[in-house]
Design a protein around this nucleic acid. Structure first.
Lengths: 262, 262
DNA sequence: CTTACCCACTCGTCTATACGAGTATGCCTG
DNA sequence: CAGGCATACTCGTATAGACGAGTGGGTAAG
């Protein structure tokens, strides 16, 4: 084992009342912030830090877990601990549901990803009728059963978003909306063809840490929150015609909205 | 030490290849989800779990740290580990900057909190001229120096949001905007009085884990992400007249937006 | 030259122990 | 009765050691 380049990391302050593992985490964080370790770079191994600081291995691991919780680094079994690279973000503009975007052929996700030069993919398609949850039922105006469309979106092989759409059966049953592929322009285009002219959307945004199932389907690194977006589509008669519940890897998205000052 | 109520938590599966600390975390998580432990309830102590499962204390602590990372529980030194209560959320509606809201007296934050029956507070006020960061400069259209207004918002004593507004000096210097208290209707009202009629706002939303400084100012529990919102205000001539950079405790907010379907 | 194996290095999991520090409770003292 | 202290409980920090498992490189065998 070779020792650490001197000057890269400092020493501990034994007089400080800050816990040793926090001091180590602080030094590593600062080194990352200063660019001593760039994106994707490998941090010193546990053994190297144990030797450098003269502490036990659990203490070093504790430091790493602090940084992992902050989403700064991630560990790879058998390889090392690395500065977490920031994935390219998808920007969702507030006009993304404008009618003119629907009037062309392909799905918004595909078009946009192609334009950005990345490889889009949609999988885990599931379309079925089911009982509406309490929340969905309320949002759709007390419907009991709904058509549920679930799918997962990937960019360059990385899952970035998991979405579930819910529609009242009297609208969706037996239409193209109930097909795995609803056709050009997506379900919003189909809804308008069916006479449900869309008026506006309402979006609710929360952020939180993912549940274990979400970690799995989105293959999330530790320290990455999710953005939880619930969109309700209203037609010109004020009826809620669809609710879309999506969970997004927070490190892959920037949402953007325009608000009138009126 | 009294032993655990039987049936509350199960046993370990030694044949499983799932790590012991994960199995324990799973059982605790499930018990919480099922309502066996309600909000604010105290989980079994480390010592109790050590005895119940027959594992070492570090293993139990490891389980707790998993749940902490998920934002499900939080530990209190000397007291125990508790199911994290969900604080009341502030809902930010998309019409919150409508002119009619500005035309009344008090600040939006105060009015809204009073209406919700909670005790609002604003502190850490700082108003000063400074060099614009690269990002702020770009958003404001290449200004070098700006007026910065920083403040922290609290609800019932709990910090929920930290905001920094930046304005070009040629607009703000020497006006009420440069005063600690900009007067009724806030700085947007002052901007309009100064002839900068507001046209629209643009908001960019990200979510991420907080930096240590943010954990401190917002007194965030572990496992709570932040919502990072950057709003740019444009006047009717298309000029960016203000950028507001706010960091919010994600567990205290739901953002809500209306999008036209046009 | 290629393949297979071994080994060194990495992080992952778990045990056992020790002491420190914050909290709450009850008892004892004044 | 009030105040203070002792105590037992809580989590926080740190050590030292063990074994397991994934990775990658080098070496030896084919």
């Amino acid at each position: 084992m070779t020792s650490l380049p001197s000057g890269l990391l400092g020493d501990l302050d034994p007089t400080s009342d800050r816990a040793v593992f926090r001091q180590i985490a602080d030094q590593l964080r600062e080194a990352i912030d200063r660019g001593r370790f760039t994106e994707g770079a490998k941090l010193p191994s546990e053994a190297e830090l144990v030797e450098h600081y003269g502490v036990s291995r659990m203490t070093v691991r504790n430091s790493f877990s602090v940084l992992q919780g902050e989403g700064l680094v991630h560990a790879e079994h058998g390889k090392g601990v690395f500065v977490r690279p920031r994935p390219p973000v998808r920007r969702l503009a507030s006009d993304r549901f404008a009618r003119r975007h629907r009037e062309q052929g392909k799905s918004a996700f595909i078009v946009e990803a192609d334009a950005a030069g990345s490889h889009p993919q949609v999988d885990s398609l599931e379309v079925k009728e089911e009982k509406a949850s309490q929340d969905i039922s309320t949002r759709l105006g007390s419907v009991r059963r709904v058509l549920a469309r679930r799918r997962r979106y990937l960019l360059d092989g990385k899952p970035v978003e998991f979405a579930a759409s819910y529609l009242p059966l009297d609208i969706a049953r037996g239409t193209a909306i109930a097909e795995p592929n609803p056709g050009p322009g997506g379900i919003y285009a189909r809804l308008e063809e069916l006479g449900h002219r869309l008026d506006h959307f309402e979006e609710e945004i929360r952020a939180r840490m993912p549940a274990p199932a979400e970690v799995k389907t989105l293959r999330l690194a530790s320290g990455v929150p999710v953005i939880h977006l619930i969109r309700t589509a209203y037609d010109t008669e004020g009826r809620a015609v669809e609710v879309c519940d999506t969970v997004m890897a927070a490190d892959a998205y920037v949402l953007s909205y325009q608000l009138p000052a009126t």
